[in-house]
């Protein structure tokens, strides 16, 4: 795994929408757990679980105003779907995604 270099926060594109602020806060709050799940899936080579989490993130993140996260999740999901189990390739996409997850801020 690559170290998490970037610490610049990313804000939801929906920030300021009174309907959304609380929801975004919950969504962001859950990110650390989501990242932990993805990392342990990777370590256990549980590609199905990793793919499910990436799939859920892909579907939900756009709705919460984190479009870039959605694209990274989609890239990872596609890679896993292709059946390619090149550990380095998966690690690269996973770290791109977890980086975005951890930078997500309310």
């Amino acid at each position: 795994m690559q170290p998490q270099g970037q610490t610049t926060p990313i804000f939801s594109s929906l920030k300021g929408d009174p309907d959304m602020d609380d929801l975004v806060t919950i969504f962001v709050h859950e990110m650390s757990e989501t990242v932990t799940t993805m990392q342990s899936s990777y370590e256990q080579r549980d590609w199905e679980q990793l793919r499910n989490v990436a799939h859920q993130l892909k579907g939900a993140s756009g709705g919460y105003g984190f479009e870039e996260m959605g694209q990274a999740a989609s890239t990872l999901e596609k890679l896993l779907k292709s059946g390619d189990d090149d550990l380095d390739a998966i690690a690269l996409e996973l770290s791109a995604l977890t980086d975005l997850c951890l930078r997500a801020s309310a």
């Binding site: 309907d19 959304m20 929801l23 919950i26 859950e30 859920q56 579907g59 939900a60 709705g63 919460y64």
Partner: peptide, 16 residues
């Protein structure tokens, strides 16, 4: 029907 709780929360608010 969705396995992602984040989607449930989002739609409940957006369609309230």
């Amino acid at each position: 029907v969705d396995d992602s709780p984040a989607i449930h929360r989002l739609l409940a608010v957006k369609l309230k």
